[in-house]
């Protein structure tokens, strides 16, 4: 009993560690990228949109900000699409490979 209990704790701990790392990257990383996108958008719009934090006075608009915002939102969109494909694929008993940037669905090994 105690041996099996120990096994459960050890195995759960191993799985948990991976869950934590993956979740930090996707669950905290992507929202941070999203926030950067919103900041870029505000920076691109200029005017009173951004003040304080950057240490610079409110400035006029900057097209670089808009481009940057689009790129950052695309990164987030990619993350969400990958997540959706992941839900669908694992529901269908398939594995999913992120080795080719575009998520690839493969038969579960």
């Amino acid at each position: 009993m105690s041996g099996a209990f120990g096994d459960d704790v050890r195995l759960a701990g191993e799985a948990l560690w991976k869950v934590l790392v993956a979740s930090l990257v996707l669950g905290a990383g992507l929202p941070a990228v999203f926030a950067l996108g919103i900041r870029s958008l505000a920076w691109g719009a200029g005017g009173e949109a951004v003040d304080g934090g950057t240490g610079t006075a409110a400035s006029s608009g900057n097209p670089v900000g808009k481009v940057l915002a689009v790129i950052l939102f695309l990164v987030v969109a990619y993350g969400i699409v990958a997540g959706l494909v992941f839900v669908i694929a694992s529901g269908q008993g398939k594995d999913i490979s992120f080795g080719h940037i575009i998520p690839t669905i493969t038969a579960k090994s």
Partner: peptide, 9 residues
């Protein structure tokens, strides 16, 4: 990240 960004954004 969003310190100082206007609320409308």
């Amino acid at each position: 990240i969003i310190v100082g960004v206007a609320a409308r954004f």
